[in-house]
Simulated scan of single mutants.
Amino acid sequence: MRAGRLVSLLLLLQTRGRMTAQDLAGELEVSVRTVYRDVESLSAAGVPIYADRGPAGGYQLLDGYRTRLTGLTSDEAGTLFLAGMPGPAAELGLGSVLAAAELKLRASLPGELADRADRVRERFHLDAPGWFRAGEPTPHLSTVADAVWSGRVLQIRYRRWKAPREVDRTLHPLGVVLKAGRWYLVAAYGERTTAYRVSNILAAEVLAEPAARPEGFDLAEYWAEWTERYESGVYTQVATVRMTVEALDRMAFVFPPEMARCARAEAGPPDENGWLITRVPIESIRHGHIELLKLGAEAEVLDPPELRSRFTETALGLLATYRPDATQLSVRSPLPAPSQPVPPPLSSPPASSSG
């Protein structure tokens, strides 16, 4: 570990020029006293490193000196694909390794290319999570990544949506994917390969048994196919909804993309009062209830009856909460009655799979 730190110190001075002991200590995550000892060791080994005194002083290399100690370790080389994504690299436990790899790569570049690399770093930044989405807690991500990297079987306890909610799985991990700020594990369970949300893993242990990996498995290709199946199969029901044109426009900002897209594609022409009838894909009655509540009084569920009944119960409950003195519910509505016939329901898309 000390040898690697000495190389990193040398490369820092080579790539950045003069640096204070405090700056070097911050970059290397060591004490200033450790920096002093490392500088003495480098000097004793013949490295032409010297110190400038005073407030603007610091350590630097003799002009023209360049080291050839820029060979990447296997771990550092393996993290180069994460360049530009320091956040995800840190979540995987590879933050310091990636920093060392980037430093060595920067030191190996000639002046003009090194300056170009610096400009790219200064002008481009990747922020993976979507808007208004905080990062999910993934306490077992490093364990999952270790199983994927070492090619060993992973034993997990997993929380899923359907009963029983908590299940034990012995998985053959195939890869990890970062999708819109959320981590997923792609793994084989028996004859089936699917994706598991890492934040739903309650416990994880890497076993000694080697994992089986299908010959020719392509993670990117599998993920593209899986996401297409998931997005098309997750919506198992359809709700017929009467809504205003403004509500249909607002769906693009507050609904999942597939729901908003289908609602717009299925929308009929608006009537003279600005209301239209469309069909919205939903995962379940409960899911449709939660999502369509976002539209408030600008939407009326016409079908299925179970979903319409749930909205009636919600309206009565809100009345009881905000008007506890009300003795009866007025059925008179300021909204105009529909002037268009209700279209027949769509056939349900196929049900999605679950881990």
Rank of each mutant, 00 (worst) to 15 (best):
L69H: 04
P338R: 15
S142A: 14
L82G: 08
L185D: 08
A117L: 14
F253S: 07
A267E: 11
R308S: 13
G4C: 07
V186L: 10
L80V: 05
D303C: 10
G288A: 07
P350D: 03
V144N: 07
G216F: 11
V30S: 05
F255L: 14
A204V: 12
E136N: 11
S31W: 03
A163H: 06
P345D: 09
S333F: 03
V176P: 08
S353V: 13
R68W: 01
T194H: 13
G58I: 13
D271P: 09
A77V: 04
S74N: 03
K104I: 00
L69W: 02
P304Q: 06
G84Y: 05
L98D: 01
V206Y: 01
I201C: 03
A100C: 14
P137I: 10
E209L: 13
P257R: 07
D146F: 11
L178I: 02
L12F: 01
I201Y: 05
L80A: 07
V144Q: 05
A45N: 05
A25K: 01
G355C: 09
D115M: 12
F81A: 14
T170Y: 01
A77W: 01
R5H: 06
T73I: 00
A180Q: 14
L307Q: 02
E258I: 06
G78T: 02
R2S: 10
R33T: 08
A212P: 00
E205L: 10
R323N: 07
V186Q: 09
T20F: 02
Q340T: 05
D75Y: 06
G317N: 00
S31F: 04
S348Q: 11
L72P: 13
L105W: 11
G111M: 04
E91D: 15
A83T: 14
R261N: 01
A203N: 12
L62D: 11
T193G: 05
L335F: 10
R2I: 03
Y322F: 13
Q14D: 09
T20V: 05
D218K: 05
A315H: 09
Q237A: 08
V30Y: 01
L248F: 02
E91S: 13
E191A: 06
H289D: 04
Y158R: 06
Q340L: 15
R310N: 02
E112K: 15
S108D: 14
S41R: 13
V97T: 15
L82Q: 09
R310Q: 15
V35G: 06
N200Q: 12
